[in-house]
Write a protein that binds this DNA or RNA. Structure first.
Lengths: 201, 201, 201, 201
DNA sequence: AATGAATGAGTATTCATTCAT
DNA sequence: CATGAATGAATACTCATTCAT
């Protein structure tokens, strides 16, 4: 366990400032002068800590992707032994993600709007990460099918990606509403009903 | 009804060429020279038909957004009178969207990857369009609730956006697989089950 | 035989302007704005004809090296059959070089002062070119030795490089005097005496 | 006579380190970080002993020019009273220069390749120094002419510069060959023959 | 005295846009 | 109408120099 030194701190400050600016204006509309102004430092200072503009953006985005993935993939997919346990697990995951989005909109904006915006190579990586999240969700589904509390006839990979879509739509929504806490609860209720019991009355 | 003249044709050719290039390389990585090469014409020609690079991209993206919205919102939300009719309607809509994505990947890529990439103002517009689609889907849900064949306790707006998320995740998936027709059928089957009956066994 | 088109002409104009500025200020002190000003054109124009500043300088210097080498190596080393013929040949070569230096000081300055100044790689190339010129001069010496009108005991390669040194010292001198034509004649007289008969009285 | 204190020593160490790096990479490709690394000290240390990068380079080059000039101009031009004495003198001078080049390639490279590379003002100074060396050599010639053992009809200034050219070509050669001691002897033999007796057989 | 983190002036290069032909 | 040569505003990046510690 090494103590973070002054250089690491400075690095983090720059990364935080760059994250704010990129989240605010978008990667392509952000220039080095904007980041310098946000931090209150000279341009040259960045280039002591980051190779170039692309490098800063990639690290900001990667950090955001890691934070989001951690919120979504924090617990093992095999532990739920009943529908109720799984429902509780899904509820926890949804709350974790939504709370992260509400507490750190910069992280969320980097993930949703900038991760794929830097260039083609980064977009591919973003989609690969979404596929991974889908596969991770699929593992939960498979666990439920194996244990008999989830329908056997659905395709776990398809459902994994579909639920990804639902949860990402919800998270993106949290960024756009004035009272995100209320919105979060409306989402969790309705989506859990949809997910477990369907819309048919 | 005016007949399309030569100028309109040329315009469409340029728009098609620009769409292909932007879908291929992304808005920010595309330059006028790329589009000129794709069309086999001089740079100056664009500026006779479009105000500037931003203008071309906006029109290409708007056209793509219109095509996707048409596929999703082709039929009136109030016509289904039973669960079976609604299920058939949903199936038709999903097929229309997926088939469009498969047949015209350029349109799909513009919608999914470029609509929000041009600048902040366009990103807002893209999200507003997604919200509109969500409201449109919500109208179907409300119709089903009013007629009694869909659960009354779910929030139609939430479900509208959530189903948006599912269908967009599916459509994005179609762009990334080698056999999209098979993928489409897997998706429709599993997602309809999820949507109407839920995952609980 | 293709006619030079407008693009070739423009290229040559830019190369000439860059040559003048680089000869005047030196490669490292020259910036693109200087060259633009000299030609009366925008910066961007250069980048239509040359890859970058390095590329312009290399082409200017290479052209200068070719012109100097042509002046020095214009006639075959084996033709002189007697001392008088060789002396006439040396006189012609010296005059050609000195006249070139006098008529085109820009070419001369590029050769003497800039060819090795761009970077290490170009300096190596410059010294390799000097070695080649030395070997070429050595061929004249060997011809004279074979035919018996030049001393057999001197090392042709050494003499080739030594005479290079003499002639380059003279050419560099032409660039620095106010009456180069008179200087040229003084040089040719004294150096021919040195070269063929030595200093010992 | 003041004893060199610690500060003078440090100064010399920095000058030596800078000389090595500049000789290795060239003035314009050398940056302060390179010199700091070579010395194992911080950037700021230089600025306690030298005004700036230009100042360090100028002092390194000036020292090299002094060392070369000392080797060439170590003995008075008037002492030789006969051809044999002069020939011995020339031989000594050539050996001194060549041995210096072989023993201290850093000094030689600074003199040959960097003295004129810093900027125009330094290039002028370098050429003025070469002119001075030429005048110094001319004094030897004039001594020989006065005493009657060298040809009266050659122009001493021209011959001074021409012999400069020969000896510099030779010294530059020493830097480029794998066995410089053998090369030195080949040069001295052939060049003395050329110089005193000429090439005509 | 020594250091090296911080700085920002300076510069090469790109590329959307114009307009003379 | 069509062209593409010319343009220069805009911007990322470097590196000599300073100065607080």
């Amino acid at each position: 366990m090494t103590a973070p030194d002054a250089a690491d701190l400075k690095r983090d400050q720059i990364l935080a400032a760059a994250s704010r600016v990129i989240a605010e204006r978008g990667y392509h509309a952000t220039n080095i002068a904007d980041i310098a102004r946000e931090l209150g430092a000279g341009h040259g200072t960045f280039y002591r800590y980051f190779k170039n503009k692309h490098d800063i953006a990639v690290q900001a985005v990667d950090r955001a992707m890691r934070r989001i993935a951690e919120a979504l993939a924090d617990e093992p997919p095999e532990v739920a032994t009943s529908l109720d346990e799984y429902r509780a697990q899904v509820t926890r995951i949804a709350h974790r993600l939504f709370d992260l989005v509400i507490a750190e909109p910069v992280v969320a904006r980097l993930f949703f709007f900038e991760a794929a915006a830097i260039n083609r190579e980064r977009a591919e990586r973003f989609h690969a990460a979404l596929d991974d999240l889908g596969s991770f969700t699929a593992a939960y589904i498979r666990n439920g099918q194996r244990r008999g509390f989830l329908r056997a006839e659905v395709d776990p990979e398809v459902i994994g990606l579909a639920l990804n879509g639902v949860i990402l739509a919800g998270a993106a929504r949290m960024l756009r509403v004035s009272d995100p806490a209320a919105e979060r609860d409306r989402w969790v209720d309705s989506v859990l009903t949809l997910m477990f019991h369907g819309l048919a009355s």
